[in-house]
Each structure stands twice: as structure tokens, then as C-alpha cells.
Amino acid sequence: MSEVEIKTALDSADAKAPPPKVNKWDEAMLELKKAPWSAKFGFLVIALYVFAAFFAPLLTPFGESEIVGDSFLPWNETNILGTDNLGRDMLTRLLYGARNTVGIAFVTTCFAFLIGGVAGMLAAILGGWTDQVLSRIVDILMAIPQLIFALLLLTIFGTSIPVLIVIIAILDSTRVFRLARAVSHNVVVTDFVESARLRGESMGWISIREVLPNIMPPLVAEFGLRFCFVFLLISGLSFLGLGLQPPTADWGSMVRDNATLITYGDITPLLPAGAIALLTVGVNFVVDWFLHKTSGLRDGQ
């Protein structure tokens, strides 16, 4: 941990006083070159998905829910991957799915980190009753399995995208809270935080300038992992017909809608599922490498 602290401390010092200017971009590229093939593969996959998400409308001549022909057309020249159960172009839906499924999972994870991170840091810095109350709430929320809790809440509030994002963000923020609280706890007891307190710095200053930079590396790694969980959970819910609703193109519901094709020996419905798996594998590889680099959080080889 101490090495990380020093490193981040140095980094922030660099940002303030640029003279010994080491180009950050070059440095990052150099690190990347030394990365194992699995991490490079992960970065490549992520870049590919981001590209597909941003340029989906340019990559395909068809609209997201445009009906272009008969249903369940086999692979052919105009519809490269055939059509789905309603006659929409499969490849188009796949590309738009990158935008919808990945985008919503990403937004949800950001919210989860905002809620969990802030609450976790507050609990660690304030301690006492705030800590007790927040921690017990999280204990209770974590005692109910996430998928079941999500199902219960979706029954009550109905399935719409904002509801989905809020529910999953809150449920997932409990895990972020635990980590943020634990790592901030180690920082809060250090001398530099104590001296900031004695200087009379405000709570906000202490959390943003002293604590946050020191808990960044584990939080960044956790962001990757949480994203995978959220992504899988949302895809799972969509697969059950309870996540993103039609006609939005979404990988989970694409598998569900076209699953009958599998019984005829056609692998097309497996493609969206594979797309989900590939992205999660990619992110996991990157996170694994990042964890090895920054700390010994995971068991090394």
C-alpha cells in the first residue's frame, strides 16, 4: 500500500509542478507495451466495443428496430448475420446493443460508485454513529441476494430504464461502500490526515485532497469488476424479460427472443451472449493486470 501512496503522491505532485515533464501518455503507452498479452487483448476488446457503441449508426445501413425482411432469415449478403424473430437485421441489433447494454451498465456502475464511494468515505472519516448506521444498512441490504432483491423491486416499481438504473446502482453501491470504507479507513488514521484536521481543513477538502487520491487504485480496479457484475446482472434481467424493454436492442433479450433458432442448430442467438462474455473477459483481463501492477490485492503468480 505504501508504495502506491508514494506513487500517487508523486503523481499529484507532478500535476502541480510540471518542470520534470514526463509525458503521461508516453508513459502509459510504455506500460502498455510491457503488459502481458491478456491485458493487451482486453484493451483491444474494450476499444472495439467503445467504437461500436459510438459509431453504430454509421456502421450499418439499417435502423435499430427497422424491419428489413422476413423473420429468421439465414445469413446472406444484405443481412450478414440474418434477421431476428421480427425480421430485424441481426448485425444492426448487435451493434446498437453495444450502445444500449454497455452504456446502461456503465452509467449504472458510475452511479453505484458515486453513492457507495461517497458514503464509504463519509463513514470512514466521520466514524461513530454515521459509520454504524451506514454499515448496518449495508449489512442488511447485502443479506438479500442481489438478483432476488432486484426482482422484488422491479415487481413493485415496474420495468423501465431509469428504475432499472437506480435499483441496480443502489444494490451494487453496497459492495463499493464496503471497499471504499475499508481502504479509506487505512488512510484516515495516517499522520497527514491528522495534520490536515489540526490545520482545520474542511471535511470536503480532507476527503477530496487527502483521502481520495490514496484510495484511487483499488477503487479503479473495483470499478472494472463491478462493471462486469452490473453488466452481467442487467443482461441476466434482460434475458429474463425484465431488463431493457423492446424495441430497444439489447443483448440479453436478443438471446431470449431468438433462442428457438438454437434448436435448429443455428448459432446466431449465441452471438449476443458471446458479445457479453467477450467484453467481460476483456475487462477482467485488464483488471487482473492492473491489480498485479498496483498492489498485491489478488494472489499473484
Binding site: 462486469c228 452481467l232 443482461s235 441476466g236 434475458f239 440479453g252 438471446v255 433462442a259 438454437i262 442448430g265 448459432i267 442467438p269 449465441l270 451472449a273 458471446g274 457479453i276 462474455a277 467481460t280 473477459v281 475487462v283 477482467n284 483481463f285 487482473d288
Partner: peptide, 18 residues
């Protein structure tokens, strides 16, 4: 194993079915 954690359950299920 790292890959298999990353697979959605329904993906594994359909691959087995297939």
C-alpha cells in the same frame, strides 16, 4: 476459470445445449 466467471449463465447453458 477467469473466463468462466465472465460468462453469463445463459451463455454457458446454451453452449451446452448446442
Amino acid at each position: 476459470t477467469l473466463s468462466s466467471i465472465s460468462f453469463p449463465e445463459f451463455f454457458i447453458a446454451y453452449i451446452l445445449i448446442f
